[in-house]
Design a protein around this nucleic acid. Structure first.
Length: 730
DNA sequence: AGCACGCCGACT
DNA sequence: GTCGGCGTGCTC
């Protein structure tokens, strides 16, 4: 007889509590990273074991009697490997978010449930023993069945079979029972990469590929090239090289709706590889299956959105972040992280190269490149011939009156375009721009005297506020420079644009395409269909239209409120605007038609516009970097936003004031004044925020850690708070 | 986050 | 007399 084995497990649970919980396990110690089912209060939860010991650590301050027993150790997934746990731990510390919730974000939904995942059979693959013989059994008119049978010439999962035909799963079951189809192992590794369809590389591409090929261990690259310069081909070549050495690659892309095209291109290029997609648009089962295939090392290419950055990849050999500047790499809800930054950390941790690709790199990445931390790979020339760069024109709104946001020049040009039977896009962007008060006569802009930042107009209480330092005042009755009494926020007047256009062009009613009216599934496709069919010729769109969609008949783009983006309180707004305008300009004149882009601005003298006109992003980025340095903005200063919500604004503000007092005891920390949030009421909660900054990242980290300790101690009835590290806007 | 316990208003 | 409002307190 031998003594009963007892292990003590530290378990991370998906609860908003900054600690792990300890459980007993009557049996041999499970592997760290295992999924367990544990009782928690009255609930039963799934958790992940983050530490195991044979004795209860007295430092935990618990007695054995206080511990409950873990109910089960699940084996439906391989235990989370040490590198992923370490990555989660890093994120938990860096982003000040509970470890259990970071881990939960890293797992697909089915593996967050306190039941074993039942979809294991979806990991099996099936293949017809003899396709010809099977086809001979089928009715020649059963086209769907025949298609499924043909697909089974190579190993297929049940999802893949269902994708071929709706009833595919049922037929598969029948054929398995009849012995026509047997389980098979995909032969990903034995098939040599096909030497098919490799386009010739330009000199720039060839040199980029050569330098990527030579990379060993951790090496970050910034692949900088205009649209059409062939960044994807560079990724594909490098991926091919890394796969040839038995590696896995992680490819991150910004949006779900861009994935199908790219995925198709990857599948075409690597027909014998397991390529799995990972994004929130997948059904739970498929996402879990894809995640497991990657974690088992069976899928060698993972193509996913930001959440894919946490996928376990035992043979990780390369990370690609496409359109690395894109805002959708930032999770804005709950566990707020930047997938690009996490990807860089992961590449260093795994000692593999990482390629950050963009035509308009994030200023942070540009700085890393300029300071020698990232290697620059430039793709200069256009690989795709034919597409001529559009002709860009500025229209100064200084001389021309605006009619609901449109100049006469813009109206005339739109009319000419529509009369000629072509398509036009009026591009507005009002997302994320704070109302910045300006004089539309002389160009004066309300700015903070103390920090040089733009002031924001808070309409609720008619106050101007600096989101940087908290200074506030009532808005001036008239322009301090020219005396004009009609001060309006930049970008005002675009609200009624759609009606105005309807009135101006009754024969070609505008079609508005934005987030609000495309939320319903399929509605975007229906609208795009109308555009392609030429039924809609006048489009009104937001940045949704800037990405990805090509319209053959589109020859004119009018940008109506660029200035609202140029003078935003968001210090990142300029680079976003630059990227967006370059992108939207690329929409015009795709198919031989000469493209024209009209940009209305009151501030045509701003250095922004000449740099935009010449497409000189490098000059723009260097200038922005200098400005950021001069004004002590990120990345030259580390920022965190402390946000609080409560029933009343007073409470949230008072709470933040106390937090500011605490922060000011910390060395090297600057904390401003609490500011009411612009979108104030959200779910009946008033919100306020305060900006915390430091010239030293470690100082900021330790101050926030200190603050969290203090805030967790003191109880604040009805106040919820959280910390946003590296916030995307002020 | 859940889910309890816990004291004060309108109702089978 | 009870059902139920959500304040506050805890979860190994």
């Amino acid at each position: 007889m031998h003594a009963a084995v007892v292990s003590y497990l530290q378990v991370a649970l998906d609860v908003p509590l900054q600690r792990t919980f300890d459980y007993l396990w009557a049996g041999p110690a499970p592997t760290v990273g295992s999924r367990v089912v544990v009782p928690f209060g009255k609930q039963t939860l799934a958790g992940v074991v983050v530490a195991v010991s044979a004795e209860l650590d007295p430092a935990r301050g618990l007695t054995v009697a206080q511990l409950k027993a873990s109910q089960a150790v699940l084996d439906d997934m391989p235990p989370l490997p040490a590198d992923i746990l370490a990555l989660c731990k890093f994120c938990s510390d860096y982003y000040a978010w509970p470890l259990g919730q970071v881990i939960a974000a890293a797992l697909p939904g089915a593996l967050r449930q306190p039941q074993p995942w039942q979809g294991g059979q979806a990991l099996q693959f099936w293949q017809a023993l003899d396709v010809t013989a099977l086809l001979g059994q089928l009715s020649p008119r059963a086209h769907k069945q025949r298609a499924v049978a043909e697909a089974l010439a190579v190993p297929r999962s049940i999802e893949q079979v269902r994708a071929v035909a709706h009833d595919g799963g049922r037929w598969l079951k029948e054929w398995i029972a009849a012995g026509w189809v047997v389980e098979a192992v995909p032969q990903a590794d034995t098939a040599p990469p096909q030497a098919s369809a490799h386009p010739d590389l330009t000199a720039c591409q060839a040199s980029a590929v050569a330098r990527l090929n030579a990379a060993q261990g951790y090496q970050p690259f910034l692949l900088y090239g205009v649209t059409g310069s062939g960044k994807t081909e560079v990724y594909l070549r490098e991926i091919e090289a890394r796969l040839a050495h038995g590696g896995q690659v992680l490819v991150l892309v910004p949006e779900i709706n861009l994935t199908p095209q790219l995925e198709a291109r990857f599948r075409l290029r690597f027909p014998h590889e397991h390529i799995v997609a990972l994004h929130s648009g997948l059904a739970d089962g498929e996402r879990t299956r894809n995640w497991l295939l990657a974690a088992q090392g069976r899928a060698r290419i993972v193509l996913g959105t930001r959440l894919a950055v946490f996928t376990p990849l035992p043979h990780l050999a390369l990370i690609v972040v496409d359109e690395e500047h894109d805002q959708s790499y930032r999770q804005q809800e709950g566990f707020r992280y930047s997938a690009r930054d996490v990807a860089v950390y992961r590449a260093r941790q795994a000692q593999v190269p990482i390629v950050l690709g963009s035509a308009t790199p994030a200023i942070e990445s540009w700085r890393n490149m300029r300071e020698g931390r990232y290697t620059l790979l430039t793709l200069g020339q256009r690989a795709v011939t034919g597409a001529k760069p559009p002709q860009m024109t500025l229209i100064s709104t200084q001389q021309q009156r605006l009619f609901d946001g449109l100049t006469q020049t813009a109206i005339n040009t739109l009319r000419d375009c529509l009369d000629a039977g072509q398509q036009a896009l009026v591009f507005i962007n009002r997302r994320g721009y704070s109302p910045v008060l300006a004089c539309h006569e002389c160009g004066w802009i309300a700015s903070c005297k103390r920090c040089d930042a733009r002031l924001v107009l808070h309409r609720e209480d008619r106050r101007l506020r600096c989101h940087h330092c908290g200074w506030e005042s009532p808005p001036p009755a008239q322009c301090p420079d020219c005396g004009n009494a009609d001060l309006q926020p930049l970008g005002f007047g675009t609200q009624r644009l759609e009606e105005t256009l309807t009135g101006l062009f009754p024969d070609t009613p505008p079609l508005r395409i934005d987030r609000d009216n495309t939320r319903r599934k399929g509605s975007l496709d229906a609208m795009l269909q109308q555009v392609h069919a030429g039924e809609a010729r006048l489009l009104v769109g937001t940045q949704m239209l800037a990405k990805g969609h090509d319209f053959a008949g589109l020859s004119l783009v009018v940008v109506v409120n660029a200035d609202a983006g140029l003078f935003s309180t968001d210090f990142r707004a300029q680079e976003r605007l630059f990227a967006q305008l370059l992108q939207v300009a690329g929409r015009a004149g795709r198919a031989g038609l000469p493209g024209r882009v009209l940009i209305q601005t009151r501030y045509h003298d701003d250095p922004f516009y000449p740099q935009l006109m010449s497409g000189d992003y490098a000059a723009f980025a260097d200038r922005v970097l200098q400005e950021r340095k001069a004004n002590d903005l990120p990345p030259y200063s580390a920022w965190a936003m402390l946000r609080a919500e409560s029933k009343t604004l007073m409470r949230a503000v008072t709470y933040l004031r106390e937090a500011v007092q605490l922060l000011r005891t910390q060395p090297g920390i600057h904390a401003g004044a609490p500011i009411p949030a612009l979108m104030m009421r959200k779910a009946n909660q008033e919100r306020a925020q305060v900006l915390v900054s430091s010239s030293s990242r470690p100082a900021l980290q330790s101050a926030m850690r200190f603050l969290m300790g203090e805030l967790l101690q003191k109880k604040a009835p009805g106040v919820r708070w959280y910390i946003d590290i590296d916030p995307s806007e002020a």
